[in-house]
Design a protein around this nucleic acid. Sequence first.
DNA 1: AGTCATGTTGACGA
DNA 2: CTCGTCAACATGAC
Length: 243
Amino acid sequence: MPEGPSIVILKEEVQQFTGQKIISVSGNTSIDINRLQDKTIQEFKTWGKHFLICFNDFTVKIHLLMFGTYRINERKEIDPRLSLGFSDGELNFYTCSVKILEGDINTHYDWSVDVMNENWDPKKARMSLDKMSDKMICDAILDQNVFSGVGNIIKNEVLYRCYIHPESLVGKIPAEDINQLISECSVYSFEFLYWKKKFELKQHWLAHTKKTCLRCNLPFHKKHTGDKKRRSFFCTNCQKLYK
DNA sequence: AGTCATGTTGACGA
DNA sequence: CTCGTCAACATGAC
C-alpha cells in the first residue's frame, strides 16, 4: 500500500479531523490508547512513509508497512489496530505499526530528507550519498534517512528514467547523473501522487513489473538486487552499470 | 491454490 | 558489544 505519496494522500483525506477532539478510542495496538481519550488533534503530518497524528506534547506515529490499510468514516470486518472516534466521524487503521513519540515532533525528525516535504534538501542527499560510495544505488535510494518516502516502485521508475542500472555503485556514478537521480526522487514522487489520486498510477509505470523496455524493445531483467534484495526491473541495454 | 509483494523491526547468533 | 542475517507480521493481487 504505502510509499510516501500514498501517505500524503492519507493526510489530505483526514483534514476534516484537524482540531477535532477524540471522544472514543479503541484498538488492539499495544500502546496505551487511553492517553488519546479527549485529546485534541493539533495537526496531521507525514515524514516519508510515517503518518503522524500530533497532539500538544506527544505524537502518534503510524506506519502501514507493506499491508496496512485505513478507513475514514467506514469500518472493515477485522478489528482495527487503532480506531479514533470524533463527534462527526471516525478514523480506523488496520494491520499497522503504532508508536508514541514524546515531546516536540521536530526533535524526532529531520524534515529535509523527506522528498515530498517543503524543506526537502537535495544537497543534503548529495552529501549522504557521498558517504555511501561503495553501496549499490538500488540500496541507497531506498535508504529512508537519505530519501524518506521513496519506496521500491519509485526506485525502479527513477533508475529507469535516469538510465542507471540498479546495481551501479554510488561512488562510480557521474556527479551529473547522481544529481539527476536525487532530483527525480522528488519529482517522480509528486507525479506518483498526481497519478495515484486519479487512480491511474499503474498505467504510468515504465519499469516496475514491466517485461519489455519501451525504449529499445528488449526484455527487461527482473532481479532481487542489493543488500536489501528488493525487486528491480531494468534494461541492461538502456541502463548503464557503473562499477 | 500457491506465491509473492508498494516495508520495517527486533531477536538471535557469530 | 557489534555486526549481520533472518523470521515475523499480515492482506490482497494475480
